[in-house]
Design a protein around this nucleic acid. Structure first.
Length: 556
RNA sequence: GGCCAGUUGGUGAAGUGGCUUAACACACUGCCCUUUCACGGCAGCAUUCACGAGUUCGAAUCUCGUACUGGUCACCA
């Protein structure tokens, strides 16, 4: 029985050849140096920060070179697929504006190299597997899970390499007749690649990030088609898809590095040129419990999943900047020199990628984000803040809508100047620092963060005196502060800090203690933006009301 | 256990044989400025690049060995 006959027996309905597909998906007509890249997640989990990094790098590579960025859905593991994972990928790509040029969504294919969903490419894979069987580079294998387990145990016990190779690859030596008979008997099988490699021979592979690496050749007869759903394994699909889709650069996690010998041989078996590879470092995390460094975990680290950043309300460009800062060591410098340039114009260099894993630093993200938010106009910030609240906190959203003008005034304090305040790292952190501006948010019994002056009678005295006899809503900031200093002096508080420092015992306190009292009565907090502006927004009546609240708490 | 890679401060890192008594950014600490906070300014934070040996006039940078860390060894991607 010939290989051809065996191949026909296994794939009777496959009539096309690999050469037909070669013609269907010709070389892309792109300008010199244009990169064809892909984001190829598998919907077995929700998109995480590592996926994000890969997507962003791909996008940069494609945009900067005038190439193509396509999305391929690697859904060959249908048992583990998670509901909503695909939708979430589209949501995130859209949210961060890293949309693919080619993709397939709800039955609609955009691009000439689809389908872009692997489960819809089964005929293509079968054609390529059939070809491999015909040329003697693949065969059906009937090893049962129990037999495989036995082999593994034996290999472990004898300290041999694990895997189906050499004499362990039982069915590579079985005659086609016998194989055919088993198939006709309905026995379950997978299709294995017939390796011709020699583990003792080495070859050199060049990764764009890591440089030249020497590997032993692959000699393992790896499964290329599964028995249950007849779908290809990742390795096989990678070779077929990235060849047919004419991918020039594969960006993938470092965990794939060790599959290179296999991929190398698979491409060689078809006579195809391998794409270039950029193996990205893993994103790590310091474990809070035992202090060890480990791979970031979707289960233990909320920030691993892309939900996190959206829920917290980190601005889109801040997250992208943070990701690129980890991905490429010279990104930060570039960003400093090109503050307004879109991220995808960054000339990403695989060589500048770290080869060891990096800890994802939320402090760094916060810093990038604070800077970013500080540069937004009050109006823009209000809009983003509202958009976030509409989705994640309806109560805040309705407050923001009701008090739009006032909120913008508040957000504008010490903003839209050369050195703006940097106190919000994300939209969810605004409300805890501004709730006191909304009358209805005041609790029955406020928790006043009093500092040096704690005598309630004295505090009430200061407030009444100030509000009734000094406050003037049309005063400039200087006039305002002079009035406060005058009153402070009159009540026994030093208005001049230097003088106070020299003779502290001559005074009850200083003007800073004095203003802190006002700040706390009006906002409950001892840390707020500029008090002058806050008073202006509140106005005299509301300030008097807040004094009443204070009195109520302490005088009854 | 096999194969592959990595190891520069709390974090991300620059650095590819002399310009390094190791950039920059974040974090942290102190001081100054100051109505609080923030901003800003100044200063501090690795006498040393996992360890050992070698090459060299000279090594974080090259070689070898050791240790440790990570990845991988599925009909998962």
């Amino acid at each position: 029985m010939t290989n051809k006959e065996l191949a026909d027996l296994i794939f009777p309905n496959i009539t096309k050849t690999i050469f037909d597909y070669e013609k269907m998906y010709p070389e892309r007509n792109l300008k010199e140096g244009a990169k064809v890249v892909r984001f190829a997640p598998s919907p077995t989990g929700f998109m995480h920060i590592g996926n994000m990094m890969s997507a962003v790098i791909n996008y940069c590579l494609a945009k900067a070179s005038g190439g193509v960025f396509f999305l391929r859905n690697e859904d060959t593991d249908q048992a583990r697929s998670v509901d909503g994972a695909v939708d979430f990928i589209y949501h995130i790509l859209n949210y961060y504006q890293i949309s693919p040029d080619e993709y397939e969504k709800q039955g609609k294919i955009v691009g000439n190299y689809g389908p872009y969903i692997q489960s819809e490419r089964i005929e293509i894979y079968h054609t390529f597997i059939k070809y491999l069987i015909e040329i003697g580079r693949a065969y059906p294998c009937f090893l049962t899970p129990e037999e495989l387990e036995e082999i593994r145990e034996e290999q472990a016990k004898r300290k041999k390499r694990i895997g189906i190779y050499g004499r362990y690859a039982k069915y590579r030596y079985t005659s086609n007749e016998e194989l055919a008979k088993k198939i006709q008997n309905g026995e379950k099988y997978v299709i294995r690649f017939r390796s011709e490699g020699d583990f003792n021979r080495k070859f050199v592979f060049e990764d764009l990030t890591q440089g030249k690496i020497e590997f032993p050749e692959n000699d393992i007869d790896v499964p290329i088609m599964k028995s249950e759903n007849l779908l290809p394994t990742y390795h096989f699909a990678h070779v077929v898809d990235d060849h047919l889709m004419r991918t020039t650069h594969v960006v993938r996690g470092n965990e794939w590095m060790s599959s290179i010998p296999l991929h190398y041989e698979l491409f060689k078996a078809f006579g195809y040129k391998m794409p270039k590879y950029i193996h990205t470092s893993l994103i790590l995390k310091k474990d809070e419990e035992n202090g060890t460094i480990r791979k970031i975990s979707k289960r233990k680290d909320p920030e691993a999943l892309m939900f996190y950043y959206e829920e917290k309300g980190y601005p889109v460009p801040a997250v992208i900047d943070a990701v690129l800062t980890i991905a490429n060591s010279n990104y930060e410098e570039w960003r400093t020199n090109n503050p307004e340039t879109p991220f995808y114009e960054f000339p990403f260099s695989p060589k500048k990628m770290s080869t060891s894993g990096a800890l994802f630093d939320l402090d760094k993200l916060d810093n990038i984000s604070k800077n970013y938010i500080s540069k937004m106009s009050a109006g823009d910030l209000y809009q983003e803040y509202l958009n976030w609240a509409l989705k994640y906190n309806k109560d805040i959203a309705s407050l923001l809508e009701k008090y739009k003008e006032e909120t913008i005034l508040f957000l504008n304090i010490e903003r839209e100047i050369k050195k703006p305040r940097k106190d919000y790292e994300n939209y969810s952190s605004i409300f805890p620092k501004s709730w006191y501006m909304y009358d209805e948010e005041w609790p029955e019994e406020p928790n006043y963060e009093l500092m040096k002056i704690t005598d309630k009678e004295e505090i009430i005295n200061i407030m009444e005196e100030y509000l009734n006899n000094y406050y003037n809503s049309s005063a400039s900031q200087d006039e305002w502060f002079n009035q406060i200093k005058t009153l402070a002096e009159k009540m026994g508080y030093a208005s001049d800090m230097k003088e106070y420092k020299e003779n502290p015992l001559n005074y009850k306190g200083n003007v800073a203690d004095f203003t802190t009292v006002m700040r706390v009565v009006l906002t409950t907090k001892n840390m707020t933006p500029n008090l002058y502006d806050i008073m202006k927004i509140l106005g005299k009546d509301r300030m008097l009301k807040r004094l009443e609240i204070f009195k109520e708490k302490y005088l009854n």
